[in-house]
């Protein structure tokens, strides 16, 4: 059984943004990047399934510019047996459908039994790539899984989180694609031996420009700063002064 985990490299959550002259937005130069947190959880699920069952190999794929190789090195360090880097040009991330098309070009011929990925990336925040990839490959899918296990019959039992904390339980025959929601499971740290192995055998590199193109269906027209919805008056002074003022304001408003 083969599991593919689709990973994305995203800016660290506290990275600052710069507003570009062309109306776009990008992380400031020198910003640090990391594996998407939900993608890391997807990888952790895959590695857990591989630990609990014999004969499961876990592979990782990441579409991104040259710097994204770091994500695959980490994935190898965590325990992925193989990695593929779909090398994309620098600059703004591609539309979700383009990304899904590239991933489908890699995954389609390799007939994975299970494809896992994060429910949403922290930068694009669309949550579309997983379901689109399932649609392109003609797979059954489920999103926002918070729990999963393989049954004795070789099916995937999963629970997805729905509104107000309720959970929906499903069983999927494989092959299938599942996106994951955050859960208390802490993704493991890479092991030194895993990292050394990764260094010794770099990922297979596939140029995105060599994959079948797909006409974009969504036009990106730049970015805006979110508008303030409320007054948002900032308090000033030392922390003690600000705390006193806040207490005074709350009392004045009858909130304390």
């Amino acid at each position: 059984m083969k599991i593919l985990v689709c990973l994305k490299q995203v800016p660290e959550p506290e990275s600052h943004l710069q507003w570009l002259e062309d109306g776009g937005v990008a992380p400031v130069p020198g910003a640090r990047f990391q594996m998407g947190s939900l993608d890391a959880q997807a990888l952790e699920w895959a590695l857990t399934l591989a630990q609990d069952h014999q004969g499961i190999s876990v592979e990782a794929v990441c579409a991104g510019p040259a710097r994204a190789a770091a994500v695959l090195e980490r994935a190898r360090g965590m325990g992925a047996a193989q990695a593929c880097h779909i090398l994309t040009p620098e600059g703004a991330g591609p539309p979700a459908l383009t990304l899904a098309t590239w991933l489908a070009a890699w995954a389609g011929p390799r007939a994975y039994d299970l494809i896992l990925t994060g429910g949403m990336s922290q930068d694009a925040m669309r949550g579309q790539v997983g379901p689109l990839l399932a649609g392109l490959l003609g797979l059954n899918w489920a999103t926002l899984a918070v729990d999963m296990r393989l049954t004795d019959q070789g099916r995937l039992h999963l629970e997805r989180e729905v509104e107000a904390g309720r959970r929906q339980a499903l069983e999927l025959d494989l092959p299938a694609l599942v996106t994951v929601q955050s859960s208390p499971r802490e993704p493991r740290y890479p092991s030194l031996s895993g990292l050394l192995k990764a260094k010794a055998s770099p990922p297979q590199v596939v140029e995105a420009t060599g994959l079948p193109p797909r006409a974009p269906q969504v036009a990106a027209l730049g970015a805006r700063r979110p508008q303030r919805r409320r007054a948002g008056r900032a308090l000033n002074g030392t922390l003690a002064q600000q705390a006193q003022e806040l207490c005074a304001i709350l009392r004045q408003r009858g909130l304390l």
Binding site: L17, A124, M125, V218, A219, A220, L221, G222, R224, P226
Partner: peptide
């Protein structure tokens, strides 16, 4: 996911949160 609508030349454009909510991407279907 859309959280705002903006009238632009050529029709409506949609505002979608990105970058942890620090930016809104302006998008239009083709």
């Amino acid at each position: 996911p859309v959280e705002g609508l903006e009238d632009m030349d050529g029709g409506p454009a949609f505002l979608c949160p990105g970058q942890g909510g620090k930016a809104l991407y302006v998008q239009r279907p083709l």
